[in-house]
Design a protein around this nucleic acid. Structure first.
Lengths: 239, 239
DNA sequence: CAGTGGTCTAGACCACCTT
DNA sequence: AGGTGGTCTAGACCACTGC
């Protein structure tokens, strides 16, 4: 196979090709992919070039490598997924695992704003999922999740939803969330959500609007979360 | 024989050594460091090993490399520094550059909590700097900055403070902020700060508590910021 | 033009895992 | 023992910079 007739460095072409295979579901999560030597031979490049592409994909959480074993497609286990994207902690504390209670789930047409954010032009149906999440037994987050049915067919027919939706997305719908974009505001707790969080209406709460991004770059899920920061904080480290 | 727990790959040893030189100020910001070949010869390792160490340092924003020119110590210009750590934007918008007005500056003893966060045991003096920051002409952030005088001697005697303090830290005090840890809460705007932000006391505001971390890993500065999220949002992308 | 970093290759040896 | 990824080396060629 010849890769040499282009502007991009070889390792980048290899990266694109392998990432493309991931996007197409050529390899499934937790499966091992071919060894460096095998890929190098197939693509007609050196082992070092394949390695550079693979290591970049590891850095982007697309792959995991284990010495002596092989290279695996990164899997969203409940723990890894929650640990990676769930930012609410105790002040100066370790990561917390939330418990989740589903409040309701319904279909409706996407709003114009949602269609814009999801990059959808057609009039499309979405599922609106309401959940309440608990930290250390206390209700801490009231969450509205928007899932386009074009991406997640019949997701509202799921019998049980896992604590981490991303696990479900990956296992049942072939959607791997590789990054999320959060926008945070302080706002007054809407009256309708007050009793769920056990706070007075109008209390200051942290509103987190999230866009979740699939490996192919599409925004495939939106969520709006109202977080009580009475006992917990949204924690980030910028490097 | 089994390798001891202290075994480190060569490139990691090179990384540690070069990072140590940066910490000690052996090379100053914006200066070029020796070429790959020169370092390889000096340290008795191959060029590839030096390159791996250098590239890791580039990934951590410690160095910048330019083909054909050389490798330079990363510099906190006002633009790069603000762009990197300043998170308030317009919704779905690009990065904004804040303007800054100093309100007051005073010395006092550090509180117990501040000593804990700064990793200082002795009774130490700090400067408490109050600033008001504007976005697009509107007051948006009321900020309290805590600077230990042991790290920044006589910083309260500075005639003018730049828009980005990190530039000053690096140029005058040899302190390079490589990462920051933020904890975010929603809270009611304290009465004392209300008039500065032009909002009613008790309005929900985003409180950002930040610890700024020097290249050697020490927390060298604290700040507490009250942000109006009426027109702006705190924006993060997690990968 | 010489010097720099960027890419690519080929091969060696090591550490780890499975069989 | 054989295969995997991890480290390290040496050398080639390319692209860019500055003189």
């Amino acid at each position: 196979m010849s890769l040499s007739a282009s502007f991009q460095p070889l390792y980048k072409q290899v990266y694109d090709l392998l990432t493309g295979r991931l996007v197409e579901g050529h390899w499934k999560p937790s499966e091992s992919i071919p060894s460096e030597m095998a890929l190098a031979e197939e693509l007609g490049v050196s082992q070092g070039t394949v390695r550079k592409a693979l290591n970049q994909m590891v850095a982007e959480n697309l792959l995991e490598r284990q010495q002596g074993k092989g290279t695996y497609v990164a899997e969203h286990t409940q723990e890894s997924s929650l640990f990676r994207f769930f930012r609410l902690r105790e002040p100066h504390g370790e990561s917390l695992i939330p418990e989740t209670q589903v409040l309701s789930s319904s279909r409706r047409a996407a709003t114009q704003k949602e269609r814009d954010q999801l990059g959808l032009t057609a009039k499309v149906q979405v599922v609106e999922l309401l959940r309440l999440r608990f930290l250390k037994g206390e209700p801490a987050i009231f969450e509205k999740v928007i899932q386009p049915l074009s991406v997640f067919p019949n997701i509202d027919k799921e019998q049980v939803l896992p604590n981490s939706l991303y696990t479900l997305y990956q296992e049942k719908y072939g959607i791997s969330i590789v990054s999320v974009r959060d926008e945070l505001r302080a706002t007054e707790l809407p009256k309708a959500y007050a009793k769920h969080l056990g706070l007075p209406a109008g209390s200051p709460v942290l509103k987190v609007e999230r866009a979740s991004i699939h490996i192919d770059g599409r925004v495939v899920e939106l969520s709006h979360a109202y977080c009580s920061t009475k006992h917990f904080v949204y924690s980030v480290q910028h490097k």
